[in-house]
Each structure stands twice: as structure tokens, then as C-alpha cells.
Simulated scan of single mutants.
Amino acid sequence: MTEAETTPPGDEAGQYWYAADKQALLGRLRRIEGQVRGLHRMVEQDTYCIDVLTQISAATRALQAVAVGLLEGHIAHCVMDAAQNGTDPSAKVKEASDAIARLVRS
């Protein structure tokens, strides 16, 4: 495989559509990371199981919200860019469909 086949395309600078929102995205991921560290502490402290499960649910929803935002952006930018540039967007649509399938299974 060539490097082009193994590396998803970004723009010329190697950035993706979310570059403008990168700090906000990283902030959300840091908060989720904090939630997961909190879960670890809860288990270490023998917190009641239902309370741990509630926090797992919250962390899961937060990750799903990030994933949905990335999927929306992929469709709005990557798929649309392919269509507007005269490239067949079906590969980008397939990527989105595969990602949705992975999210639904998890």
C-alpha cells in the first residue's frame, strides 16, 4: 500500500475540517477523560454500583455526542467536498456508514 492509501486525506497542511473547532473538541475530550478518571476513583473507593453505572452512562453519552458531531462534520465537509470537487463521494459515504455501524454496535 502507498502512503496515500493508508493515510486519510486532510487539506494541504494535514488538517481536517474540525481544525477550527479543535480546541473545543479537545476540551470536551479532556472533560470525558476526567469523567473516566472519576469512575476509576469511584471503583477504588467502593462506590455503590448503581452510582458507578450512572456515571458510566454519562461518560458514554458524552463520547457519543462527540462521535455524532464528528460524523455530522464528515458528511457536511468531507462528503460534500468530494461531491463539489467532481470526485465520487460514495467512498466518503461508505466511511460514514461504517462508522455509524461501529457506533451502533458499541
Score class of each variant (00 low, 15 high):
Arg28Pro: 04
Leu29Ser: 07
Gln23Cys: 03
Ser57Asn: 15
Leu53Ser: 07
Ala20Gly: 11
Gly38Glu: 00
Leu29Asn: 04
Ala58Arg: 08
His40Trp: 03
Glu33Met: 04
Arg30Asp: 09
Ala24Trp: 04
Glu44Ser: 13
Val36Leu: 09
Ala58Cys: 10
Thr60Leu: 05
Gly27Ile: 02
Ile50Glu: 14
Arg37Thr: 01
Gln45Asp: 15
Arg41Phe: 07
Arg61Tyr: 06
Asp51Arg: 08
Val36Ile: 11
Leu25Lys: 12
Ala58Phe: 06
Cys49Thr: 12
Asp46Phe: 05
Gly27His: 05
Leu26Phe: 02
Ala58Leu: 10
Leu53His: 03
Val43Trp: 09
Arg37Tyr: 02
Arg28Met: 09
Val36Gln: 05
Ser57Trp: 03
Gly34Ser: 07
Leu29Lys: 04
Leu29Met: 13
Arg37Gln: 08
Gly27Pro: 01
Ile32Lys: 00
Leu26Cys: 02
Arg31Thr: 06
Gln45Thr: 07
Ile32Arg: 00
Val52Trp: 02
Gly27Phe: 01
Ala62Cys: 09
Leu39Tyr: 03
Val52Tyr: 03
Tyr48His: 14
Gln35Gly: 01
Thr54Glu: 08
Gln23His: 07
Tyr18Cys: 06
Lys22His: 12
Met42Val: 04
Trp17Val: 05
Arg37Glu: 08
Thr54Ala: 10
Gly27Ala: 02
Leu25Val: 14
His40Val: 06
Asp51Lys: 11
Gly34Met: 03
Gln55Asp: 14
Ala62Gly: 07
Ser57Arg: 15
Gly27Lys: 02
Ala20Arg: 06
Gln23Trp: 05
Arg37Pro: 00
Leu26Trp: 00
Ala59Pro: 11
Gln23Thr: 11
Glu44Val: 09
Ile32Asp: 02
Gly34Leu: 04
Arg41Leu: 12
Gly34Thr: 05
Ala59Trp: 04
Met42Asn: 01
Asp46Gln: 14
Ser57His: 15
Leu26Arg: 04
Gly34Asp: 07
Asp46Val: 09
Leu26Ser: 01
Ala59Ile: 08
Ile32Trp: 01
Val36Ala: 03
Asp51Thr: 13
Asp51Met: 13
Val43Met: 14
Gln35Ala: 00
Arg30Ala: 09
Tyr18Ala: 11
Ala20Val: 13
Ala20Trp: 07
Ala59Glu: 07
Gly34Ile: 03
Ala20Lys: 08
Val52Lys: 04
Arg31His: 10
Arg41Ser: 15
Arg61Thr: 10
Thr54Ile: 09
Asp51Tyr: 10
Tyr48Gln: 13
Arg31Asp: 10
Tyr18Ile: 11
Gln45Gly: 11
Gly34Pro: 05
Arg28Ser: 11
Leu53Phe: 01
Tyr48Ile: 10
Arg41Asp: 14
Val43Ser: 10
His40Pro: 00
Gln45Trp: 07
Arg41Lys: 14
Ser57Gly: 15
Met42Phe: 05
Gly27Thr: 04
Arg31Gln: 11
Gln23Asp: 14
Gln55Lys: 04
Ala19Ser: 11
Leu39Pro: 03
Val36Phe: 03
Ile56Asp: 00
Tyr48Val: 13
Leu29Gln: 08
Gln23Arg: 12
Leu25Ala: 12
Glu33Gln: 12
Thr47Ile: 14
Met42Pro: 00
Ile50Cys: 13
Arg41Thr: 15
Arg61Asp: 10
Ile32Val: 11
